[in-house]
C-alpha cells in the first residue's frame, strides 16, 4: 500500500544516505531517538550547516538528493567530510512546510535549501529574511514573488527553476499530437499549488489554439487519484494532462499504476512517470536543476552573496515516450512525436 501515514512527521535525516534511500522504519526510530540530532548541533562551527527542506519523504527524493550532493561535491563539500545537513521532510503535507522551515531557520544554518517546488521556497522565504535560501522549483520565481528578477534576485534568495510549469501547455500539444482525433482532454490540477491558476490559464489558451476542449479535474490528495482516473474514463476524454506540480511529480509511480489500470493515456512533467509504465512526460530535467541547486548551496557556503547569483533556468526540457505503454493502450505514436522524443522507452 502506497498510502503514507498522515502524521505530521518531522524527520531528521542524519547525513549519509549514500547507501540508498533511508527506510521509513529508520526514520521512526530516528524520531524516537531525538538525541540523535544533538551531535549535529554540537559540531564545531568550522563545519557549516545546511538546512534542507523537502516537501516529501526521502524515498522519492533519492534521485534528487543524489544530484544535489553531486552539485555540492563540485564546489568541494561532502556530507561525510566538511558539511552537515539537517533535513526536514513534510511527507507530502505541504501545509506543514512553514513550520518546518521555521524550525530549520531556528537552527541558524548557513544556507537553507528549499527543493522540490514553489511551496517549499515560499515557506522558507516566510521563515527567514536573513538566512540565504537556495530554491529549486518548476515555476517562475518572479511570477510567484519569490525573487525580484532572474538576473538580480535581490534579498536572501536565489535558486534554480526548471521550465516544467511553463511547458504544461506543451504537454497538451503532445497529447493532441499523439491523439489527433480527440477533441476533449482532461487536465489534472492541484488547487493548492501556487502555480495552478497560471497553468490553467496557459492550458486554456493552448486548448483554444489547438481547437480542443478541456475538463479540469482538481485533486490535492493522493487518495483522490483513483477517482481522478475513473473520472477521465467517464468523461470520454481522450487523455489526461497533468499540470506541473511537485505533488504529482513525486507520485509518478502511483499515477503510472493507475493510468495503466484505467487505460488512460496520460502525460506528466516527470520522467519517473513513463519510466514507471506511464505513457509520456515532458518537463525540465530535475537532475540538472537539483544538481545546480547543490552548486549554488556550495557557492553560498563559499561566501558568495545570493544577490550575485542569478536565478538559473534549466536549459533542458525533455520528452519521454513509453512505446510499450502506447502499445498497451493501442496507440500508434506518430513519427513527429518520435522525432521530438529525447528518450523513447520500448
Amino acid at each position: 500500500m502506497a498510502v503514507r501515514s498522515r502524521d505530521p512527521m518531522i524527520v531528521r535525516g542524519l547525513a549519509r544516505t549514500d547507501t540508498g534511500p533511508m527506510r521509513r522504519r529508520d526514520f521512526i526510530s530516528g524520531l524516537g531517538a531525538a538525541t540523535l540530532a544533538r551531535p549535529v548541533r554540537a559540531q564545531p562551527l568550522a563545519i557549516p550547516l545546511i538546512g534542507y527542506l523537502g516537501p516529501e519523504s526521502p524515498e522519492p527524493f533519492a534521485s534528487r538528493l543524489k544530484a544535489f550532493r553531486e552539485g555540492l561535491g563540485e564546489t568541494g563539500y561532502s556530507e561525510s567530510r566538511n558539511v552537515a545537513i539537517e533535513y526536514r521532510w513534510a511527507q507530502g503535507q505541504y501545509k506543514l512546510l512553514p513550520a518546518l522551515a521555521a524550525d530549520l531557520a531556528a537552527r541558524k544554518p548557513a544556507v537553507i535549501v528549499a527543493a522540490g517546488g514553489a511551496p517549499a521556497a515560499l515557506a522558507a522565504k516566510s521563515a527567514t529574511g536573513t538566512i540565504t535560501i537556495v530554491f529549486e522549483m518548476g515555476g517562475d520565481p518572479v511570477a510567484l514573488g519569490v525573487v525580484d528578477s532572474l538576473s538580480r534576485p535581490g534579498g536572501n534568495l536565489t535558486g534554480v527553476s526548471s521550465l516544467s510549469v511553463e511547458v504544461s501547455r506543451k504537454r497538451l500539444e503532445f497529447m493532441r499530437e499523439l491523439l489527433p482525433d480527440e477533441t476533449v482532454f482532461a487536465v489534472a490540477v492541484n488547487p493548492t499549488s501556487p502555480t495552478a491558476d497560471s497553468q490553467l490559464k496557459n492550458l486554456h489558451a493552448a486548448a483554444d489554439a489547438l481547437g480542443v476542449r478541456l475538463h479540469v479535474l482538481s485533486t490535492s490528495d493522493e487518495i483522490e487519484f483513483e477517482g481522478l482516473f475513473s473520472a477521465v474514463a467517464g468523461l470520454d476524454a481522450g487523455g489526461l494532462v497533468f499540470t506541473s506540480d511537485p505533488y504529482f511529480a513525486f507520485r509518478s509511480q502511483r499515477l503510472a499504476a493507475l493510468a495503466t489500470r484505467y487505460r488512460v493515456p496520460a502525460i506528466t512533467q516527470s520522467r519517473d512517470f513513463p519510466n514507471a509504465g506511464g505513457l509520456m512526460s515532458y518537463g525540465g530535467d530535475f537532475t540538472q536543476s537539483h544538481r545546480r541547486t547543490g552548486i549554488y548551496a556550495g557557492r553560498i557556503l563559499n561566501g558568495e552573496k545570493p544577490a550575485d547569483l542569478p536565478v538559473q533556468l534549466v536549459t533542458k526540457v525533455e520528452l519521454f515516450v513509453n512505446l510499450k505503454a502506447a502499445g498497451a493502450l493501442g496507440i500508434a505514436v506518430p513519427p513527429t512525436l518520435l522525432s521530438s522524443a529525447d528518450v523513447v522507452i520500448e
Binding site: L150, S151, R152, R299, D308, L309, P310, V311, Q312
Partner: peptide
C-alpha cells in the same frame, strides 16, 4: 554562468 546570467549589468 552566473556572471552571464546577470545580463547587461
Amino acid at each position: 554562468i552566473s556572471l552571464v546570467l546577470r545580463g547587461a549589468d
